[in-house]
Amino acid sequence: MENAATKLEDVRANIARICKPARRNPEDVTLIAVSKTHPADRIEPLLEAGHWAFGENRVQEAQDKWPALKERYPDAQLHGIGQLQSNKAADAIALFDVIHSLDRLSLLKALAKAMDKADRRVPCFVQVDIGDEAQKGGCPISEVPQFLAKVRDADIPVAGLMCLPPAEIEPAPFFALLAKLARDNGVEGLSMGMSGDYETAVQLGATHVRVGTALFGARG
């Protein structure tokens, strides 16, 4: 409990430290604790410490862990941060409070249909293929304006843009590019930055950072 709470305070303090010279309010940065691969007994200390935003990659894993946790901690907010298959759209809408990986027309249609059926609108980040890496998924940069228009036409709330910059390359230019894309398209939310680069992401305008290792240690 103390260890988890200490790590949480360390990350929050880092975010506040970076926000100060950037003239940003730390409360405008949502820290998403990436709990994928970690069992409920490792998640619960963070919930006990008053942290509510968590991220999971896989629908099945989230289904196994989170219904019971949400019963005990109804304020918890669950973010779907992994690539999402269209055939899991209904399950995702039932589970997640925010989805970070809307990146293609087939998924857009599946999510819109699932939201209509469930009578629930779940905010979605449009994932952008910021480094031109097809294996990571993401909407091509050149197609972002048109895709955002289709998302809005489907009455899906646009939470913002999300990216995963290429590994082992300085991430700042990619974060800056995502921020410019957001400005150019009238979008405010920026889901970018993980344990190794969230400070850079906050400096460049991230509104949501997805931090796992810095909070939980190595994956289970």
Rank of each mutant, 00 (worst) to 15 (best):
K88M: 11
Y73T: 12
S106Y: 04
E2D: 14
T213C: 12
A76I: 10
I81G: 01
L148C: 03
A22E: 08
L69C: 08
L69M: 10
A49F: 09
Y73L: 14
M1E: 12
R24A: 12
K7C: 11
R121G: 05
P173Y: 09
D28S: 15
V151E: 00
H100A: 05
I156L: 15
A13I: 03
A4R: 00
S35P: 11
L102R: 04
D119N: 12
M194E: 05
I99D: 01
G131I: 01
T30P: 02
A182N: 08
G193Y: 02
R120T: 06
K20P: 00
E143N: 07
R210V: 07
P166A: 08
E71K: 15
T200Y: 00
A154R: 04
E199R: 14
R120D: 01
Q146G: 10
P171A: 03
R219E: 08
Y73H: 15
P26C: 07
M115N: 02
L46F: 15
C19Q: 13
N14H: 12
S106Q: 14
L107K: 09
K36N: 08
V59F: 09
L8V: 11
Q127M: 11
P173E: 14
E9W: 06
A13W: 02
D64A: 15
R152F: 04
V202R: 00
G55Y: 07
A16C: 13
R183P: 05
E56I: 15
T30N: 10
Q135D: 13
A112Y: 01
I81E: 01
D197Y: 08
P67M: 12
K70I: 11
F147Y: 04
Q85S: 10
I156Y: 02
G196A: 14
L105E: 14
A53W: 10
A40T: 08
V11L: 08
D97C: 07
N185Q: 12
K150R: 14
E44W: 05
A33N: 02
L47V: 04
G131Y: 05
I93Q: 02
L204F: 13
S106L: 10
W52S: 08
P21E: 12
L95R: 09
E188N: 10
G138A: 10
A94K: 13
T6D: 11
R12I: 09
M192R: 02
N14P: 00
E9V: 11
E71N: 15
V11G: 05
E27W: 00
Y198Q: 07
A110P: 04
V202D: 03
E71D: 15
Q146K: 13
R104N: 13
P171R: 04
L78V: 10
E56W: 15
H100L: 05
K70S: 14
R210I: 07
S191R: 02
K88H: 11
A214K: 10
A94F: 02
V98Q: 07
G217Y: 13
A22K: 09
A206K: 03
V151K: 03
G189S: 06
E170H: 09
L95P: 04
F147P: 02
M1N: 10
G82C: 12
V59G: 02
I18P: 03
S106T: 12
I81D: 03
A40N: 06
D75I: 07
K113I: 01
V211I: 15
H38L: 09
G205S: 11
L31W: 03
H100D: 11
N57D: 13
K70P: 06
I32N: 02
D97Q: 06
H38N: 14
A114E: 08
P165F: 05
D132Y: 06
E48I: 08
A49S: 13
K36T: 09
K113N: 03
